[in-house]
Design a protein around this nucleic acid. Structure first.
Lengths: 209, 209
DNA sequence: CCTACCGATCGGTAGG
DNA sequence: CCTACCGATCGGTAGG
């Protein structure tokens, strides 16, 4: 990783668009969009602020790219899960697994989406909300299907859907890549929690009796 | 509620410290600390920016007050629950109920704590982290106790504790006071979810067999 | 990739 | 509570 390199005293490879995006991702995730200046992003890359404009159109466009790309990936993940699974139980298990996994392996992107989507200029803000709602409705419908088929048992599909999705989202808040748990382990445990919440637990750990 | 009042053309009561705090709370929650200017807070109150300094020491002190007061309340709630309940199941039910309820009834405070604690100056940032950790450890110990007594069944107290707490926190992200659900209803459902997650469900809805 | 520079806005102060 | 004002920093442009 390149950090605070003095670009004038050595044969240092030029900064790329991907480098700028990565530096912005780290800083936006840590301090928020409005808490990060272009000067800080430039310093992290070892260049001057105006040089950033060789790679970006504006600070806002940098945020748009991060948020919209991430939301697109979330929906792609979800659509793939729905295509590969038929029954509500397997669908919920797979959907929560990939969703939690993504929030463990792409923590920065998740934090930026959740903190800073509100700071997007129009029309990107509306586009982002629409994509998010798409995932939201797909997820809720999955739970409604499980209730209709009698394999889920929960008072409100709406409340359960929010609880499960936001539980997965929050993995980005506490998970550490260098910690004792693997992302896969956490994702598996979270998918178990989701099934418990909708009353579809199939593991052998039921209450003792 | 006073909003955009022209304070020079009528006998309007003077702005109070509580008014400033309330306006800041709303704007910080909506746009974040760095996304909110003192000018916007002043405009919301119908006064000029410098007049705010009759009520606050600085923008940062305004944030400190909001964050530290809120975190203190969370710990007070938790300590009261622990004093009033003895068994892990009742403790977890009560702790998640009050925690989810607080996030439904104090949405703005919760959003600010979660988004902007990182922007506190020292030493307040460390103080906030210490209070938060206090709640975190108390909550986790509650789950460890339930495992030790054999009334909970979950793979990792740490993962379950994060999942349950963050699930409650996220109520602030979607709950609407003017929506169809009451805060009490949501809190009750979330406490059921928590008991399901730790494998301590006592409701009558167990899996059909 | 750089230096030089811009207008706008920021949090905050002086003084009444 | 106000007007007048401050230095610092912001995102961004000109020009090379």
């Amino acid at each position: 990783m390149k950090t605070h390199v003095d670009r004038r005293s050595a044969a240092v490879p030029p900064v790329t668009k991907a480098d700028v995006r990565d530096a912005a991702l780290t800083l936006f995730a840590q301090r928020g969009y409005h808490g990060t200046s272009l000067k800080e992003i430039a310093e992290k890359l070892g260049i001057r602020t105006p040089s950033l404009y060789n790679h970006i159109d504006s600070k806002g466009a940098l945020l748009s790219q991060i948020v919209l790309d991430t939301l697109d990936q979330v929906v792609l993940d979800f659509d793939q899960v729905m295509a590969e699974n038929d029954e509500p139980i397997e669908r919920l298990r797979a959907a929560t697994t990939v969703y939690a996994l993504r929030h463990a392996t792409h923590r920065r992107e998740a934090l930026v989406v959740n903190q800073d989507t509100v700071h997007l200029d129009e029309p990107d803000r509306s586009v982002a909300q629409r994509i998010r709602r798409q995932h939201e409705h797909g997820f809720r419908q999955l739970i409604v299907d499980g209730l209709d088929e009698g394999v889920f048992s929960v008072e409100s599909a709406k409340v359960a859907s929010f609880a499960i999705r936001e539980m997965c989202v929050s993995v980005a808040r506490w998970f550490r890549e260098d910690g004792p748990l693997t992302a896969e382990d956490v994702a598996r445990q979270y998918s178990d929690y989701a099934l418990q919440i909708v009353g579809a637990a199939t593991s052998g750990r039921g209450r003792p009796n």
